[in-house]
């Protein structure tokens, strides 16, 4: 997902084709699995995100290998996919947040406010980063796409860090599926942000850009496998949280203390 476009219309290795197509095929499989296991009812935005990402990437791939497609047409499709993907990602983050914190009214509102404030700060920070980035006037559509990617990834990374940080501070255990989704999104977003920042803000030679593309594609492939593991592989009973009883000695100690307090 992301920078494959850099080497567009060039002869690619077999690995390149595999890394571009395989994650999309796996995403379609994941979507089918989610539907079949009825997991999509709990994660509707994730299903939409999975299917949309797969269709987007396959469309871009077909456009990339079709000789008659003009580069500008390819980039227009890329822009449309990027905007759709960005919107879906933020809806997905909201879904993960709701699953993680809605069961706990004591901190749900605080979490919402915190994420809201962080979101505003991130929009400001990403706008500043975009404003200071060098803009290529000759290929504005290309550099603009990279800046939009960078903006989306900055906000996505920041919100994910906030969600993980907030849940860690309050020791809230995220549901396994949501943890998997968030972890995959985090890995993908952080790596893509780093590579995107290099592409958008430096003048890297083509060879280096191709390496970054490979890194992005490989990481995304890994993330898709991670999602499949977390969402389709059934959890073993031993992984379920064991119900524990409070130890007797502590309870007795607490009893004594409060009795003294109540006297």
């Amino acid at each position: 997902m992301a920078l494959y476009c850099l080497g567009m219309l060039q002869a690619h290795s077999l690995l390149w084709h595999y890394l571009w197509v395989a994650p999309s095929v796996l995403l379609l499989t994941l979507g089918f699995g989610l539907w079949r296991l009825r997991v999509h009812r709990q994660h509707p935005f994730f299903l939409v995100f999975v299917l949309a990402s797969a269709v987007e990437q396959l469309t871009l791939y077909v456009l990339d290998i079709t000789p008659s497609v003009e580069p500008e047409t390819w980039w227009r499709f890329f822009w449309a996919g990027l905007i759709l993907e960005g919107i879906l990602k933020f809806a997905l983050l909201a879904e993960v947040f709701a699953h993680a914190f809605r069961p706990y009214p004591a901190i749900a509102t605080l979490g919402k406010r915190l994420i809201g404030m962080v979101g505003v700060l991130l929009i400001f920070a990403s706008s500043m980063a975009a404003a200071f980035a060098p803009l290529d006037s000759l290929f504005g559509i290309v550099s603009g796409a990279h800046l939009l990617q960078q903006t989306i990834y900055i906000i996505e990374c920041g919100i994910l860090v906030s969600i993980f940080g907030f849940s860690s501070y309050f020791r809230i255990g995220m549901p396994s599926a949501d943890r998997g989704i968030a972890l995959g999104l985090s890995l993908s977003a952080c790596v893509h942000l780093a590579t995107c920042a290099l592409v958008a803000n430096t003048s890297l030679p083509d060879d280096s850009r191709v390496v970054l593309d490979f890194i992005n594609m490989a990481i995304f492939h890994f993330c898709v496998l991670m999602w499949i593991y977390y969402l389709l592989v059934p959890r073993r009973a031993s992984e379920m949280t064991a119900v524990i009883a409070l130890p007797e000695n502590n309870l007795a100690l607490w009893n004594r203390e409060l009795e003294r307090l109540l006297q």
Binding site: W254, N255, E257, L258, R260, L262
Partner: peptide, 11 residues
């Protein structure tokens, strides 16, 4: 732990 005679605790 219904068997444990829990009453009230402070600490």
């Amino acid at each position: 732990n219904p068997a444990v005679p829990v009453r009230i605790f402070a600490g």
